[in-house]
């Protein structure tokens, strides 16, 4: 008997030979390296624009998640959560484990993280959390899964791989 894996993430990749652009599931994507993501994170910290970096991430990722759930008729919260973790990994951002999603709060752990490991590779251990891109993704996950408008949730990093911890942890609360 064939098994239908409902939470298998399906990604259709297209390269447009005319414009030379890459699309994943119809979304324009671009490949960059950890130097770029680390320098954007550092820039945001220096310019006091970490919320902007997080919001930019959240807005972009909301579209990917909501579009995917809608087109693939994903309705169960457990399936949505599992697919969100797989999408995070597919983008090369690391291994995400959603510990719980409550109506007004939640907890997320990153077992590995491109942003943190890239930072450490470039500059070594830091004295503050730096993963605003990941935090933006987590806020988008909670907002989309709980059918809430943008900026409904706040993800705060409480433990950081970039600071030397084995995993990163995020506390999520409804704003």
């Amino acid at each position: 008997m064939a098994t239908f894996i409902k939470n298998e993430l399906k990604i259709r990749h297209d390269f447009d030979p005319k414009t030379k652009r890459h699309y994943d599931n119809g979304v324009l994507t671009v490949r960059h390296c950890h130097h770029y993501s680390s320098l954007y994170s550092q820039l945001a910290i220096d310019a006091n624009e970490t919320e902007l970096l997080k919001d930019s991430a959240s807005e972009a990722f909301r579209e990917i998640l909501s579009d995917y759930y809608e087109k693939n008729n994903i309705t169960a919260i457990a399936d949505k959560a599992e697919l969100a973790c797989r999408q995070f990994a597919a983008m090369g951002l690391g291994t995400m484990k959603i510990l719980n999603i409550n109506e007004h709060s939640g907890e997320v752990e990153l077992l590995s993280s491109h942003t943190d490991e890239g930072w450490k590779k470039k500059w070594g251990v830091y004295d503050k959390p730096i993963n605003y891109i990941g935090a933006g993704y987590i806020e988008a996950v909670f907002e989309v899964i709980l059918d809430s408008p943008p900026k409904s949730f706040l993800a705060e990093e409480t433990q950081s791989i970039a600071m030397g911890a084995e995993t990163s942890k995020f506390k999520v609360i409804r704003r």
Partner: peptide, 17 residues
């Protein structure tokens, strides 16, 4: 380490910054 993120993310941050 490579990432594959939506172009919109990079553009949004740069434009608003």
């Amino acid at each position: 380490l490579v990432n594959q993120l939506p172009a919109k993310f990079w553009n949004t941050f740069a434009d608003r910054l």
